[in-house]
Amino acid sequence: MKARNNNFVILVTIIISLMLTIMPMPIGADAFRPNWALLVTAYWSLALPNRVNVIFAWLVGFIIDVLLGSVLGINAFATALVVYVTVNNFQKIRNFSLWQQSLIIGLLTALYHLIIFWIQRFILDVDFSISYLKPVITTAVIWPVVFLLLRKVRRQLQVH
């Protein structure tokens, strides 16, 4: 029963992040929308790398593709790659301070957006705009809040 409860907590947090991903925002603020699903998936891959892995991240990214109506597989591939890097370096990243983790999450988010741009450039012939990288700033800034909130949830509900 304990494992079922643990999986339920992880799934609920992912569902909430997906809802925040598609939630309507004002046009000016939408360009700065944090990558909620990437943040939550990155947190769980740092906290529980044996349970939240590349396949789980690919599924989350695929759901994002479906929800946003983008070309299937773009967000799935980018999310899986970011989680792959995170899982392979989770022991190093865990030892960094919270602001250093924010910088790393910012770099991983920039990688995520650049991968999406490169694939879209190849498939759809889109041009680069600096607005592609605006969510990097807000995602890095909001990381400490997401990290502390999810850590509190994980500890109180004994997710391990």
Rank of each mutant, 00 (worst) to 15 (best):
M1K: 10
A3Y: 12
R4M: 14
F8E: 08
F8H: 08
L11V: 06
V12L: 15
I16P: 00
S17E: 02
M23H: 07
P26N: 11
G28M: 08
A31Y: 10
F32E: 02
N35P: 00
W36L: 04
L38H: 04
A42K: 00
W44S: 04
W44F: 06
S45Q: 03
R51Q: 13
V52G: 01
N53K: 14
N53G: 12
V54C: 07
I55W: 11
W58Q: 00
V60C: 07
I63T: 11
I63A: 12
L68M: 11
S70H: 10
G73D: 08
N75I: 01
N75T: 01
N75P: 03
F77G: 10
T79M: 15
V82W: 03
Y84R: 10
F90A: 10
F90M: 08
F90Y: 15
I93Q: 05
R94A: 10
R94T: 08
F96H: 06
S97K: 11
S102H: 09
I105R: 07
L111N: 07
Y112S: 01
I115D: 06
I116D: 03
I116V: 14
I119L: 15
I119W: 08
Q120A: 13
Q120K: 14
R121K: 14
F122M: 14
I123R: 13
I123A: 11
L124S: 14
D127S: 15
S129P: 01
P135I: 04
I137E: 03
T138F: 03
T139K: 07
T139L: 08
I142L: 15
W143L: 05
P144A: 04
V146Y: 02
L148C: 07
L150H: 03
R154F: 01
Q156E: 15
L157H: 07
Q158C: 06
V159R: 00
